[in-house]
Design a protein around this nucleic acid. Structure first.
Lengths: 216, 216
DNA sequence: GCGTTCAACACTGCATGCAGATAGCGTCGA
DNA sequence: TCGACGCTATCTGCATGCAGTGTTGAACGC
């Protein structure tokens, strides 16, 4: 096997899965793009087996969709499904915010504060790309602090599909407003009140969900 | 291809996936059981390819776990992970109860009432197996009424893993208490108050989660 | 009797062959 | 000009080959 990817420690199929996943999430592979197994095998200079394995996994987590005897393509995420994703995200973000507060450690406060400080500057400067990164990082920090593997995994899945879907829409929740919401979540977590933290996180996502609904 | 399964309309790998999934959930395949691809291929009289596909999907949804170069085995779900599953389930069941209430239709009330009536009888008679079925059916009915594909799928995944984990524990929430909780959820949904429905559903799962925590 | 070494076995993971199905495209007829 | 038909290229999905690796168990030394 001669791979163009230098990942010996891992399985080829695993590397392919992560690579394709990244390309879908980053938008390099747009929704509707056919995931032809032979074509991908040739591109990566591997056989079709590990490619097939990777595609199966992408389909299993709804980042790709397949038709009988027609193979898979990058998932097209409808507006209705995006709303559904946000319905899930609302309660999941609420849950991790609550758990992170219950298991509060000083390190969380420090990292959130650092992210928030930079985010405020970035939002005022209008750097949209960096805003997206910091927004994701803020939520990721909280869900890692919640130490709930099941919730984390679910949110990862939701988040990746949201990113795919968002690329098809021009909608944004507003960078400054996002910083404002995050500030409220940060304060609620810092105050040690799990209920308040859950409520703040839910309100944040709920607001975005309603924006999506209204944009129909 | 000569399959012992009479499913021509579907792919062999799809049928195998569902079959193995059922066997894991039903307990026929116990946690820790090796999922040897050649052995399963021979058992089902198919080649290793579709078996491999099925196992990959089981691993992807955490019903099986694999080690490098050692293949997969049926997932062993720890007590800690079971608690994590219930943390997720708590908010997810809350969310679908709220959505089902918002989208309330008369058919839901009828089906829930029918289930509840039988469940009450069954609980008093102490029929544990039927209790499990009715409990699952009650929650399934609500999440279908919520019409949120993302939430439904997540709950399906949680539920299947909970069933696997529960088989390893002697813990039960109490049949009569379950009926009591379900009655409260039913009434909250019927009253048309989404907040109350969410709270009732969360309280139900929360109680079970605390039982699990206490049983350490 | 007990720990160590080694050899046979079984399986994983990647590669590849192949029949059937599908889509795309050009040809033909009207 | 336009639509129906059929052909070809490509792909999917299942089968199978094979090298490398982990495991098991038996022979061996102590």
């Amino acid at each position: 096997m001669t791979s163009s990817l230098q990942a010996d420690p891992q399985r080829v199929g695993e590397v392919l899965y992560k690579t394709l996943r990244d390309r879908i999430i980053s938008g390099e592979l747009r929704p509707g793009t056919r995931l032809s197994v032979p074509a991908l095998a040739e591109e990566f200079r591997v056989s079709r087996s590990p490619v097939r394995d990777a595609v199966i996994r992408l389909v299993q987590e709804n980042l790709a969709a397949e038709t009988m005897n027609r193979g898979a393509e990058v998932a097209r995420i409808s507006r209705a499904e995006l709303v559904s994703l946000y319905e899930a995200r609302e309660v999941l973000e609420g849950a991790v915010a609550r758990l992170a507060t219950e298991k509060y450690e000083a390190a969380l406060r420090r990292s959130l504060l650092a992210l928030l400080t930079e985010h405020r500057t970035v939002a005022e400067q209008g750097d949209f790309a960096r805003h997206i990164e910091l927004d994701a990082a803020f939520h990721r920090e909280i869900r890692q602090a919640a130490k709930s593997p099941v919730l984390s995994r679910m949110l990862d899945g939701v988040q990746s599909r949201v990113l795919v879907a968002m690329r098809s829409t021009s909608l944004t929740g507003g960078m400054v407003q996002a910083v404002h919401d995050h500030q409220a979540i940060f304060e609620a977590i810092g105050s040690g009140d799990p209920e308040a933290a859950e409520e703040a996180a839910r309100a944040h996502i709920h607001r975005l969900k309603e924006l999506l609904r209204a944009a129909d």
